[in-house]
């Protein structure tokens, strides 16, 4: 049958394997159970129409559609193992003193760059603004964020923590680079990276906010 060949998989187990790839065990279990029940009903309908068991199963799986597309949609609605790792890292990183020291070191490096000869042609005012912005982004803002996220309220609320981390210094960084490199390619590159970083962070925050999955980062036993 030609229509069977078009589909990548013709059995339910392979379909489920692809569609639930990367999801947390609890979600995998729930989705597997739902789709299995769905397929059992569909198979019964095809058997009642006189199809053989094998054909009935293949038809039921074909009716489910592309498992990759379904999996992509499911991973948008549910937290994945990667997401949980990212959440875990965010919790560890926020309020971590070594991480704050790394930010200070990066800021010092930027200040050094702006003080170097390659920026000698830039107007003096621009360099003062750049150094001030680096000081705000690299020292003041991370210190405030560090102190805020160490409070009990924030440590208990991962979504609030994520939003602070996502927005963080992004806006300040954007202003800084637009000011210093308004039309240069390096300016466009940094602005693009910053915008993508903010978008990615806010999208992840939104996903976590909407998700009903366990956000504790503790894997659910299979």
């Amino acid at each position: 049958m030609n229509w069977l060949k078009k589909n990548e998989v013709d059995n339910l187990w392979d379909w489920l394997e692809i569609a639930t790839k990367g999801l947390l065990p609890a979600d995998k279990r729930r989705i597997t159970q739902e789709i299995e029940t769905h397929c059992a009903e569909a198979m019964k309908a095809h058997l009642d129409q006189g199809e053989s068991g094998q054909v009935a199963e293949a038809m039921a799986v074909v009716e489910l559609g592309d498992p990759k597309a379904a999996g992509k949609s499911l991973r948008k609605k549910h937290l994945t193992e990667k997401d949980v790792k990212r959440l875990d890292w965010t919790k560890k990183d926020a309020g971590s003193f070594p991480s704050l020291l790394v930010t200070y070191a990066i800021s010092a490096f930027y200040c050094y760059i702006f003080g170097s000869g390659s920026f000698a042609k830039e107007p003096k005012l621009d360099l003062i603004v750049a150094k001030t912005a680096v000081f705000v982004i690299g020292i003041i803002l991370p210190t405030i964020t560090f102190l805020i996220v160490r409070t009990f309220w924030f440590r208990r609320r991962i979504t609030a923590l994520l939003l602070v981390k996502s927005l963080g210094s992004g806006d300040f960084g954007l202003i800084l680079w637009l000011w210093i490199f308004p039309i240069s390619s390096i300016g466009i590159f940094f602005v693009t990276v910053w915008i993508l970083g903010i978008i990615s962070g806010v999208r992840f925050w939104n996903k976590v906010r909407k998700s009903k999955d366990d956000k504790s980062g503790v894997p659910t036993p299979v």
């Binding site: 379909w15 569609a19 989705i31 739902e34 789709i35 769905h38 569909a42 009716e63 489910l64 559609g65 592309d66 498992p67 597309a69 379904a70 949609s73 499911l74 948008k76 609605k77 549910h78 909407k210 998700s211 009903k212």
Partner: peptide, 17 residues
């Protein structure tokens, strides 16, 4: 007509909302 596998992400999305 639609592929039935797309129904569950839609249902779970509505549940999340």
């Amino acid at each position: 007509d639609f592929k039935e596998g797309t129904l569950y992400p839609a249902l779970h999305g509505l549940e999340n909302k």
